[in-house]
Structure formats: structure tokens, C-alpha cells
């Protein structure tokens, strides 16, 4: 039994498959980190957008009402409350969260070329860029909702205490709100990040050679090997190990933030 196992792991076939899977997994990792690096800050910006209370019509409408000496009717009230930035952001959140990521990847990769806007070019580099862009956008919108929940979950009294102490809006956000928000969002964020680990496999729809694509390739034929089923299932080991590491790291972060309540 043991000898058979050693023989298997030392066989040329296993080494060929493992090296292919490793190179596939490197692509997976790259996509994972690029998505996090892009989507974490972009999501924060979008969350500010959807919380924006910029209402450009409030002043002119209020002024016109005062001049006419009339009480605001239904239309006037709707105009006063019209917040374009927030509206656009929430509309985009709905679209991005309401459609499949696969569809977004395909759309982003093919549609610009079909419309004659631009092409991503050929080769694996171009495919990676297109997929990464789709992932960053998709995850940024998901993250933005998590951020929004985290920020709105911080009691108003915290902001007011900062205001009363003469702090600027920027200081209130960075010195008071931010860390309390981070503490609140670590659990839902962990969920989303673990999902991202596995979602990277969707990149194969435009033939990005990530780890699942590599695993499957040995069924069809790769490096002179074909009809091999186990490499596809073996990819699960990569995902399990990686999501395990991510879980441990995020758990540590959660522990670190336990110094306050």
C-alpha cells in the first residue's frame, strides 16, 4: 500500500500533472490577489458613492418654493431628495449583483471588440487582464455593500462625539469609524473572500489556464497524457489548502480586533 503510494507520487506522470497544476494554481493565485488589491479600495469608494447624500436640486427647489411661498408637494419633495450619485451607485450594485459573474466575464471580454470599442488583444496576458477587470468590478460592488453595512452599523453617537470634539470629517472617518467598521466587516468579508478563492475557477470560460482548466486538460489530452480523470479532482486539494490558509489568517485578524468592543 505504502509502496504503491510512493511509486505513484514519484511517477513521471504524477510529476508532469503536478507541475501543470502548479502553474495553473499560480494563475489562480494571481487572479485572487489582483482582485483583492483592486476590489478592496474600489469597493470602499463605491460604498461612499451609495451613501452620498449630495442632492443638487434641494437648494434650487427650496429656493423656488420659498419664493413662490408654497409648501412642498409630492414632486418637489422627490426632487429635493434626488441624490444622483447614490442612485447610480445603487443601480450598478443591483446590476452587478443581479447577474452571473460568468456572464460579466464573457461580456467584458467579447463585447468591447464586437462593438468596435477596443480589444483586449490575444494571448494569455490579455485574457488575464480582461478576467481580472471583471473580477475587480464584480467583487468591488459586493464589497461596497459590506462596507456600507459596516459603516452604517457604527453608532451615530461616535460620529457626533468626534464632531463635538472639533474633528474634521476625514479625521472622524480615519480615526474613529474605520477601525470599528473593519471589526464589523471581518466575518462577512471572510465569507466573500473564501467565495472568491473558488470563484476564480470561473475564469476558464474564456480559456484562462487556471488550475481547474489544467486539471481538466488531462482528460482531453495535455503533455501527451489523456483520459486521466484524477487530476481534475486533485485540484480540490489546492483549493482546500488555500482556503484553509485564508481562514486561519482572517481568524487571526478577528482575534487581533478583539481588544475592543
Amino acid at each position: 500500500m505504502l509502496r504503491a503510494a510512493v511509486e505513484f507520487f514519484a511517477s513521471e506522470q504524477f510529476l508532469a500533472v503536478a507541475s501543470a497544476l502548479n502553474s495553473g494554481f499560480l494563475v489562480t493565485l494571481r487572479l485572487f490577489f489582483v482582485t483583492l488589491l483592486g476590489a478592496l479600495p474600489l469597493g470602499l469608494l463605491i460604498s461612499f458613492g451609495s451613501m452620498s447624500r449630495w442632492a443638487p436640486l434641494a437648494r434650487p427647489v427650496g429656493w423656488a418654493l420659498r419664493r413662490a411661498g408654497r409648501a412642498p408637494g409630492r414632486v418637489a419633495r422627490a426632487l429635493i431628495r434626488f441624490c444622483p450619485v447614490s442612485l447610480v451607485c445603487r443601480l450598478l450594485v443591483w446590476i452587478v449583483r443581479g447577474t452571473p459573474l460568468v456572464l460579466q466575464i464573457i461580456t467584458l471580454f467579447y463585447v468591447p471588440g464586437m462593438l468596435g470599442l477596443f480589444t483586449w488583444g490575444g494571448g494569455s496576458g490579455a485574457r488575464f487582464t480582461a478576467v481580472a477587470a471583471a473580477f475587480v468590478i464584480n467583487y468591488a460592488f459586493y464589497f461596497s455593500e459590506i462596507y456600507r453595512g459596516g459603516i452604517q452599523g457604527v453608532p451615530v453617537g461616535q460620529k457626533e462625539a468626534g464632531q463635538v470634539l472639533g474633528m474634521t470629517r476625514r479625521q472622524i472617518f480615519f480615526k474613529i469609524t474605520l477601525l470599528q467598521m473593519v471589526k464589523r466587516i471581518v466575518p462577512p468579508m471572510s465569507n466573500e473572500i473564501i467565495t472568491l478563492v473558488k470563484d476564480t475557477s470561473l475564469a476558464r470560460v474564456i480559456a484562462l489556464q487556471e488550475v481547474i482548466w489544467m486539471g481538466e486538460s488531462f482528460m482531453k489530452g495535455n503533455k501527451g497524457i489523456s483520459g486521466l480523470v484524477w487530476p481534475l479532482f486533485f485540484t480540490a486539494v489546492y483549493y482546500l489548502v488555500f482556503s484553509g490558509v485564508v481562514t486561519i489568517l482572517l481568524g487571526r485578524l478577528e482575534k487581533k480586533l478583539e481588544f475592543f468592543r
Binding site: 453617537g157 462625539a161 474613529i176 475592543f260
Partner: peptide, 26 residues
Amino acid sequence: RLHFGLVFQSFNLFPQYTALENVTLA
């Protein structure tokens, strides 16, 4: 605002700062 100080009913201390840091932050 700095002409006035306000002590809230619900304290509103900043939870991530120590007592001393709460006093000295602003």
C-alpha cells in the same frame, strides 16, 4: 464647536482607544 463641550447620555467613548487616548485624541 470648540466653544462648547458636550457630555452625552450614552457616553459615546471611542471603543478602540484607551481612557487616556480618548481624552487626548482630539
